[in-house]
Simulated assay, not measured.
Amino acid sequence: MSSPDPSRPQIQRILVVGAGAMGSQIAMVFALAGHDVTLQDVIESGLTRAGAQLADRMGAAVAKGRMSQACAEEALGRLSFSTDLDQAASTADFVIEAATEKLEIKQQIFAALDRAVPAHAILATNSSTYGSSKVASVTSRPERVCNVHFFNPALVMKCVEVVRHPQTSQETIDVVMELVRTIGKQPVLLNQEVPGFVANRLMGVLRDEALNLYSSGVASIEDIDAAAKTALGHPMGPFELMDLVGLDVNCMIAQATYEETGDPADLPHPIMQKMYESGRLGRKSGMGWYNYETTR
């Protein structure tokens, strides 16, 4: 096993911006891998909720025999929570932003981070739709900016898409790829920015065809999902996956992709848009393509 390159930046302290479902789980992934992690959010109650949910997740993992109580306690002990972005960023070696999928908000965060983090720090966005060039442009370190896109649920899913933009340095890519491997994930490198990256582009084709088949009356939701699982070997069907991710998130991703491409084919599918507007968001609302009220 080769020794670490002493000239390469060493990643020790991690900052995750955004304490939603993705941000909090990403923070836990790094803590479980031995990093000191700060989870930052502007809303104190969001941090409190994230801390409680992560403690519950670790407790469940211990109860199922997936880790020891000592391991869970050590990982939780590496987590800290803050509403102060400047203070949290001041000692970070690596920052990953997991805020809402709105470009203007992300740009505000990256401009603030650029002023607050040390000169060597790498800034990453977890965005699934916006290439990092869109946020690198508001910083003084575009060579140290890239996408590092985790998948939901981040504690479980192995894939992490690493996307470079034209100014991302090779050193940054090397450091990030190594970091992703050390936390037990499988990095997938994209050498150019494309809307939706790899996985969401593949998933979008399957999702839209499933919606077309259903809306045309070819097959039921249940049978389309069954075909995906029993014929294609997918762990869940496209409708189950939409419910898990959230119809709101699916529509937001499709809308953001359309804004990037200008192709009307990338707009949210009409039937999915109608579901979203009706408030049927999937598991999070209790109703989506399936009814989850009875399981609550």
Rank of each mutant, 00 (worst) to 15 (best):
C159W: 03
L232P: 05
L79K: 01
L103H: 00
G59E: 13
E240V: 06
L32H: 10
A124K: 02
I43N: 12
S169V: 07
G77E: 08
T230G: 00
G279A: 12
P195S: 03
P270H: 09
R164Q: 15
F239T: 05
A199H: 00
L213P: 01
I26A: 00
C146D: 11
F110G: 07
G51Y: 04
A27L: 07
M22W: 02
D266L: 01
R283C: 08
V16I: 11
E240F: 08
N191L: 11
K102R: 13
T139V: 09
K64W: 05
C159F: 00
K106Y: 00
A75H: 02
A112H: 11
F30W: 12
T83A: 06
T139A: 10
E44W: 07
K284F: 05
A88G: 04
A119W: 03
N191K: 13
A210C: 01
D5M: 11
F81K: 02
G233E: 00
L247H: 14
M177I: 14
F94L: 15
C251K: 10
M203G: 03
S80Q: 13
N291P: 08
S220W: 03
S278F: 00
A70D: 14
A199L: 13
L85F: 04
Q40S: 12
V145C: 15
Y214L: 06
Y292L: 09
N126W: 00
A228M: 15
V205E: 03
T230V: 09
S80C: 15
S128W: 01
V42T: 14
V62R: 09
L179N: 06
K185E: 00
N126L: 01
A136P: 07
L190Y: 07
F30T: 11
D225G: 01
M252Y: 04
V218S: 05
Q25W: 06
S140R: 13
S90Y: 11
A111T: 14
C159L: 13
V148S: 04
L247N: 12
Q192A: 10
D174V: 10
L155F: 02
Y130V: 01
E97I: 02
R283I: 15
Y276N: 14
R207W: 10
